[in-house]
């Protein structure tokens, strides 16, 4: 598998953003992620698919060290972001999370105004000098989150008052506001209706211009629609990783084929 990924990226000639080598994750005694090797490319949408409990979300949360917040979780192996090990003691996980933004399964806007939601990250990281600059960041982020037109007249209204799809786009805009390099999305559409899902997917496709996007999804159609690369996880193993088209039309591993055709999962 490691070899596959390597040849693939060599072929593509694109820049590697994140590379994981021999990553193991343990929850207490449970071995949740087994020996995963993967190269995630810049300015690409990478989808993680697999049945429930296969470890794709766990692996995603390793990429910005969100697993650090779980006491019993232990991660070994190397995860390099732009060639630097993010689990190195020198690395500040707080800074890392500003660089590797995350969008969660359930829209989770803060119970604050729309403006304050977006301004949260820039404020704690001191990205804006003065009110005017902050206003600018908020507007820019909301525009890139494709929600500016819907909320520009009510920036003072609470973010929790928006519809589910709007809330999720608000959360994406909030993550963008800290100017991350990578955007991790953990099943961002699972709580949304088909129309909101379509809007978010469109947004993901636009975000690819500027960021490396990693998306965990349960929907294989979604993976096929939005991603260029797909990784299939099963029982904590990375079974297959490659071009999305390749994975869905001509998988190498019989387990991938079974999952895609609906026989396991």
């Amino acid at each position: 598998m490691y070899d596959t990924a390597k040849t693939e990226s060599a072929l593509e000639q694109t820049e590697t953003k994140i590379s994981a080598r021999n990553v193991q994750v343990y929850y207490g005694d449970t071995h949740a992620i087994k020996d995963v090797n993967v190269e995630i490319e810049d300015k690409t949408v990478t989808a993680f698919i697999g049945p429930s409990g296969c470890g794709k979300s766990t692996f995603l949360r390793c990429l910005n060290r969100m697993n650090d917040t779980i006491d019993i979780c232990r991660v070994t192996g190397d995860i390099l972001l732009d060639g630097e090990d993010i689990y190195d003691p020198k690395v500040d996980p707080v800074q890392l999370r500003a660089k590797v933004g995350m969008v969660f399964q359930k829209p989770n806007p803060f119970p604050k105004s729309i403006y304050d939601n977006i301004a949260y990250g820039p404020r704690i990281h001191g990205l804006a000098r003065g009110k005017a600059e902050l206003d600018e960041i908020v507007e820019k982020s909301l525009r890139r989150g494709a929600i500016w037109d819907e909320v520009k007249d009510r920036l003072d209204a609470p973010g929790t008052g928006l519809s589910g799809g709007q809330q999720q786009r608000l959360c994406i805009a909030r993550a963008i506001a800290t100017e991350p390099e990578v955007l991790l999305m953990d099943e961002p559409c699972s709580a949304l209706d088909p129309i909101a899902t379509a809007q978010v997917e469109e947004l993901i496709d636009e975000l690819r211009q500027s960021y490396s996007v990693v998306i965990v999804t349960h929907s294989m159609q979604q993976a096929a629609r939005v991603s260029q690369k797909t990784a299939f996880f099963h029982l904590g193993n990375l079974v297959e990783y490659g071009e999305t088209g390749q994975i869905f039309t001509n998988p190498e591993d019989p387990r991938t084929e079974s999952y895609i055709t609906g026989r396991i999962g």
């Binding site: 707080v94 890392l96 999370r97 660089k99 933004g101 969660f104 803060f110 959360c171």
Partner: peptide, 15 residues
């Protein structure tokens, strides 16, 4: 307070 709000704040890089 829902843990999703903790995740949101930590995920944005707050201490």
């Amino acid at each position: 307070v829902p843990s999703s709000l903790r995740d949101a704040a930590l995920g944005l890089g707050s201490t």
